[in-house]
């Protein structure tokens, strides 16, 4: 990311005065705009936009072998890519790194048992479970991509529709079978759980802030991404950035991040419940 030392100083000083380039305070989030059900041919989809950051998420649900120690769990895997239209430095190495970071963070968030109840995805113990392939495409990057991606992921997972599956108990000596109902009308929501989101805080100078823009991310020394669920519980923390940070006083910042996570999840929930009309690509 291209930024000069004087621009970094300007941003850092603005941060310490609690007045950011676009007029926000340290803990103010840009407006979060979401929509779901963009593409009818995949199991679930969602798009989230915050400032200039624009992320699309598709979910494809398939039946696959049950995983986990006892074969009682389903699987959620993430693939991420920054579509080359973001206007970022086009070096392949940089974009590969960014893709990997995004994937790893999301995979880590959803690997925690509390975050995603993978056991509920299991249909036949030891044999068949739902496999969710989640594809995250970053259309535009204007800072805070991880958080925005996590909002879209949450929305997409919670709006994923799958065919109705019935478990037919086998007769004596025969194993159970699965029957998949092909009727499109019988599709139902797969997950009713509580997928967490990421809320990232960046250290600019000596001040922490939420929802960094691209310039602010280029100026930050440290970044902590906190996984938060709807009860405000912390489900994982990932650190980025080369700087070291002082732990004192960080506690309050993390609490604020968790609080923001709760608010955003509440907001996402309301938007989904309102069944707003999909705008999608053709607007």
């Amino acid at each position: 990311m291209h930024i000069s030392s004087t621009e970094v100083d300007y941003i850092a000083l603005g941060a310490s005065s609690d007045f950011r380039a676009d007029g926000r305070h340290a803990f103010e989030f840009r407006d979060v705009i979401v929509e779901s059900h963009l593409v009818p041919s995949v199991s679930g989809s969602s798009r989230a936009q915050v400032g200039g950051t624009d992320v699309l998420v598709y979910v494809k649900a398939e039946l696959g072998p049950a995983q986990g120690k006892n074969g009682t769990e389903g699987v959620i895997t993430f693939t991420a890519h920054y579509s080359s239209v973001t206007g970022l430095d086009n070096e392949v190495r940089t974009s590969n790194m960014l893709n990997a970071e995004l994937e790893e963070s999301l995979n880590r968030l959803f690997s925690e048992k509390q975050a995603a109840n993978l056991e509920r995805l299991c249909l036949l113990e030891g044999r068949v479970a739902w496999t969710l392939l989640v594809d995250v495409t970053v259309l535009k990057a204007d800072g805070n991509v991880l958080d925005v991606a996590s909002f879209a992921v949450r929305n997409a997972l919670l709006s994923t529709l799958v065919p109705h599956v019935e478990v037919i108990r086998g007769e004596e000596g025969e194993a159970d079978e699965i029957e998949v109902d092909d009727e499109p009308a019988s599709r139902r929501l797969l997950l009713e759980g509580d997928p967490p989101v990421f809320i990232s805080v960046c250290l600019l100078g000596s001040k922490w802030m939420l929802d960094a823009s691209q310039d602010e991310e280029a100026s930050m020394t440290s970044k902590l991404s906190v996984g938060v669920n709807s009860s405000g519980k912390v489900c994982g923390i990932v650190k980025a950035g080369e700087g070291a940070l002082e732990w004192d006083g960080l506690g309050d910042t993390l609490k604020t991040a968790a609080n923001m996570g709760v608010k955003i999840i509440e907001g996402l929930r309301k938007v989904q419940a309102s069944r707003a009309e999909t705008v999608g690509f053709f607007a």
Binding site: D18, D31, I33, S231, G267, V279, A283
Partner: peptide, 24 residues
């Protein structure tokens, strides 16, 4: 719901979440 009720919430800790709308 929120276990952090005793935290001093910064007045400016705000966010607006809304559905996409057709822009003019």
């Amino acid at each position: 719901m929120n276990e952090m009720v005793d935290v001093e919430v910064d007045d400016h800790c705000t966010v607006v979440v809304r559905a996409a709308t057709r822009s003019r």
